[in-house]
């Protein structure tokens, strides 16, 4: 079953700007899917069209097989949306914001109140339910928008940069929450600037640039395209000279940190064998930069070179 099917979606704004240039996208039910792209690539426009907030110029969209042209009501019932910007009435209370949203989906108030308690509780906002929404922190506002998007129990949750500006602790707790609702069957589409977020959460990924999809694949196969990775190894014993590591290119950053480049022809075990043979013990190891970030920049860069 396809949760979302987009065919030839095009959007040309009234000022002539082509935000989307005939994109095709398919997201299967139950997937955790990431839509990546630089600023202005067309991610938010695509999402806004799916959620009926922007009119499309051309193309076809089906949500759980409901065409948004002919069966908009059913399509809307299936979607929950968390936008990029805070878009609730900041003079209202969290409980009212969430319960009113339920009302727009035809959910009676007594049921909505029970669900609001459940979702606000899970997102650690229940204690703040009667506060003025203005007084909530940035992270709380984001979580409130997630609770609001879930109140009608949608089958497809679309999150447009949900963790922007949120501290690491809250971001991790939001990841945990999103994983749990995905495990319970909700399809999730996520756009994010934190590429480690996409790598950690998503199984499939599309990269959009200049209104076109330039990659649409599984996260694993995308990462396999990465030809080499740079690792920083923290060594136990102090090093005075750069060790000889065969085909592995390496740099001694300081006496206890070694930078090693591993290409796709060599396994990490080979590296450890070489290090062991020289009695170099490794305390810890980390990527120099985010793998997906490197790949993302390469893919977008390649696309630009080809278009020139």
């Amino acid at each position: 079953m396809k949760a979302l099917s987009i065919k030839n979606l095009t959007k040309i704004y009234s000022n002539g700007f082509k935000a989307l240039d005939g994109i095709d996208l398919t997201v299967n039910a139950g997937d955790f899917y990431s839509l990546l792209g630089p600023n202005g690539a067309g991610k938010t426009t695509a999402i806004a069209i799916v959620c009926s907030l922007v009119n499309k110029t051309m193309g076809n969209i089906r949500v759980f097989d409901h065409d948004i042209e002919t069966r908009l009501e059913e399509a809307k019932m299936s979607i929950g949306m968390v936008p990029q910007e805070v878009n609730f009435n900041t003079f209202d209370t969290p409980i009212n914001i969430v319960v009113n949203q339920a009302g727009y989906y035809g959910i009676e108030r007594n049921i909505a109140l029970k669900r609001a308690k459940e979702y606000l509780g899970e997102l650690r906002l229940w204690e703040k339910r009667n506060d003025n929404a203005r007084s909530l922190s940035g992270g709380m506002k984001r979580r409130l928008m997630i609770a609001r998007a879930l109140i009608h129990q949608p089958k497809l949750l679309i999150l447009d940069e949900p963790t922007a500006g949120v501290d690491i602790e809250i971001r991790r707790s939001m990841w945990k929450f999103l994983r749990s609702i995905n495990n319970n069957g909700t399809t999730i589409i996520l756009t994010t600037h934190y590429l480690e977020e996409a790598e950690s959460l998503c199984r499939n990924v599309a990269i959009i640039d200049d209104g076109k999809i330039i990659q649409d694949t599984s996260m694993n196969s995308l990462l396999r395209q990465l030809k080499q990775e740079t690792f920083i190894l923290s060594v136990e014993n102090e090093l005075t000279t750069k060790p000889k590591l065969g085909d592995f290119e390496c740099n001694l950053l300081d006496s206890q940190n070694l930078e090693v480049i591993i290409d796709s022809n060599h396994g990490i075990n080979e590296l450890f064998e070489l290090l062991n043979s020289q009695n170099i013990k490794i305390n810890s190891m980390r990527n120099k930069s985010n793998r997906l970030e490197e790949l993302f920049l390469k893919v977008v860069d390649n696309k630009k070179k080809h278009s020139h």
């Binding site: 809307k76 878009n87 609730f88 009435n89 900041t90 949203q101 727009y104 989906y105 035809g106």
Partner: peptide
């Protein structure tokens, strides 16, 4: 006010 504050979207995304 709802349009300016963006919370009109709450109704526009719903099947109202």
């Amino acid at each position: 006010g709802a349009k300016y504050g963006g919370y009109l979207d709450e109704m526009l995304v719903a099947p109202v």
